[in-house]
Design a protein around this nucleic acid. Structure first.
Lengths: 359, 359
DNA sequence: ACCTCTCATGGAAACGTTTCCAGTAGCCCC
DNA sequence: GGGGCTACTGGAAACGTTTCCATGAGAGGT
């Protein structure tokens, strides 16, 4: 027994101290005078190791600066112990919150997260999923851009996919892919009811181009108005691509074409930003001339003058929940409809009663 | 030769089609009737393979839905082909831009990025670096929180580290760790010169707590004033932890204590936000009563009323450049001082000539 | 016809883990 | 004192790649 101690200690020590290559389990085993199986047991926690041996192994590992290779482990166990996260744009505040949520949850579960941005391009999304699959991630969380076929393929090829913050367009959802979403319909409904309650009857709706949850929001807007007995004028419902210039163009078009709108409901922070800028450009006072409210309670909503009334979507919670769903509850996945997280109406100063007639 | 075609095709096909486990290189080899070495050559691009064989292999791979495992490859080649990215908070607009830049560059080089947020906590940073090391990432890009010792250890243990957007505090920089930074000193200088040029003499400086590039900015502020012959009053230079409440407290303290300040230079967007909110709270008109300018040209700077004059730091470029430095130019790393990327002064409406005396 | 050169190919040995399976002690209980 | 424990340990076989090396077959020069 005693003879084992320090056996091959010189050979063992020359790895990790001198050259650059990291020490391996073999080096540690040799240096500690034990078998590699024992070292593995010490680090993986499984099996039983005597206290003395464990201590000896840990000491050797420390001396050699040993760190188990996730590649070796992953190869053996058939999974990298990481998850993939695909968002359109990490720069978008909502996406960033979602990413933060996923990161927070993954941290508690000891998994790492490979993040990539697809820029709303289905082809890039497909490519990213391909790469993530090669990495053998344990699962993928995605805020999909739109193309259903791609994701159907991805869901087939990858272990498990969860949609977060946005699902695929159209009712024929990808089967088996669960999703965690904000209650967009509820959010838009409360916003619409709030504006209508202030007396607005000609409310402009700035929506995103078809795809994602855009339809859901527009539908909620129309339904709520209908329910309140307010006629929906097609002219007041416009859609824009999710880009600054398109949003600005849509907002400018709406406010110039219909000088009689008394309120604008922007279905996203880019659209809200556009509405604010256009109103300022047209010298419309908010809320005296036009009320503005939007979906997404981003940082600047409060900094605006007047501060903007908005519906907050719980981006962080959505990410956290999606990650939980992916990793902790493989059983509950894909069972029922999407998980809907509630939104919150944050009333600030950008909405007021309508003016009799603008200009 | 012909006999090989389809050899073991039934055995080969039953993997990847029926069960869930992904097909391996062996399955493809068997299905295509070639050796695994040939399949490897087809996919890795190295070596030479006849056109006919290549086609046969690709067909088999397609049929089996084969994707080479990055784990197997990484194990063999001794590197995962991914990089680690550590930021304080993905939700921060500057960090998000930086992440986007790294992502963009990594994409062009075919590497994936493992992102994690340390929340400004050195202990968490160390833990994240530990995990990244286990993942055998090819390198790490970090926006460090502060503790030098941790990063010295990390730099020793990990292949290569590049600091981006922020370096360690204090002149004794971690040796061998290159950094890509915004020219903070230049940015603050131009902001200071701009305010002084408008006639301001009592300029409040809202800085971050010691650590990171905070000292650089404060130093630049003092130096520039000194150079312009404006005396620096210690009372006007305050520091706050990088959190909303602390920033607000600092701004409120400054503006209430010194009612005679005519301009505020906020050395970060959180501080700028605080300044705007406090000014509004105190019923100070911007820029009539007090001018406000800040570092970081975030989205809301333009949405503010009046729009905020700011210095834009090229977050995306910094991330891109750091990634390039890490992966493309292993030779040029650690040679000279930090790479400084220029900032840009964006003049908007939040600054004007000073009022004779406030209130 | 022979030698040599190149190209195409397959076998086999790594790479660093985990885990099954044996094997060796020490121990308690009859 | 023997039979079964249990606790601990090491060997060896995977896991899916890449890559070195050997082999074989044509091609081209003499």
């Amino acid at each position: 027994m005693a003879a084992r101690i320090g056996r091959r200690s010189t050979e063992g020590a020359n790895r990790g101290m001198t050259d650059g290559r990291p020490a391996t389990i073999k080096d540690v085993a040799a240096s500690a005078g034990v078998g590699i199986a024992t070292v593995s047991r010490v680090f993986s926690g499984a099996g039983s190791v005597s206290a003395a041996t464990r201590e000896r192994v840990l000491a050797a590992a420390r001396a050699l600066d040993y760190r188990p290779s996730a590649l070796g482990r992953g190869l053996k166990t058939g999974g990298s112990g990481g998850i993939g996260l695909v968002v359109p744009d990490v720069t978008d505040p909502f996406c960033a919150e979602l990413v933060a949520g996923v990161l927070a949850c993954a941290r508690t579960l000891g998994e790492h997260v490979i993040v990539d941005a697809a820029g709303g391009d289905p082809a890039r999304e497909a490519e990213i999923v391909e790469r993530l699959t090669e990495q053998r991630v344990d699962g993928i969380i995605a805020m999909p851009a739109g193309d259903e076929a791609d994701w159907r393929a991805a869901a087939r090829v990858c272990s498990s996919v969860v949609f977060a913050g946005r699902a695929l367009a159209g009712p024929p959802r990808v089967p088996g892919v669960p999703s965690v979403l904000a209650d967009d319909a509820g959010g838009v409904r409360s916003l619409t009811e709030y504006l209508a309650g202030l007396g607005h009857r000609r409310i402009g709706f700035l929506g995103a181009a078809p795809g994602g949850s855009a339809r859901v929001r527009e539908r909620a807007f129309r339904d709520t108005l209908a329910q309140l007995g307010v006629p929906v004028e097609e002219d007041l419902v416009v859609a824009a691509r999710p880009a600054r210039d398109a949003a600005y163009a849509a907002a400018a078009g709406l406010l110039q074409r219909r000088a009689d709108v008394t309120a604008v409901l922007a279905a996203g922070h880019l659209l809200g930003e556009a509405a604010v800028l256009v109103a300022r450009e047209l010298d419309l006072r908010v809320p005296a001339d036009v009320s503005i409210a939007m979906v997404d309670d981003v940082a600047w909503a409060e900094l605006c003058d007047p501060p903007l009334t908005a519906v907050a979507r719980p981006g962080r919670d959505i990410g956290y929940r999606a990650c939980e769903l992916l990793l902790r509850e493989p059983g509950r996945r894909g069972r029922a409809g999407p998980v809907l997280l509630p939104t919150e109406l944050v009333v600030r100063g950008s909405c007021g009663p309508p003016r009799a007639q603008r200009r």
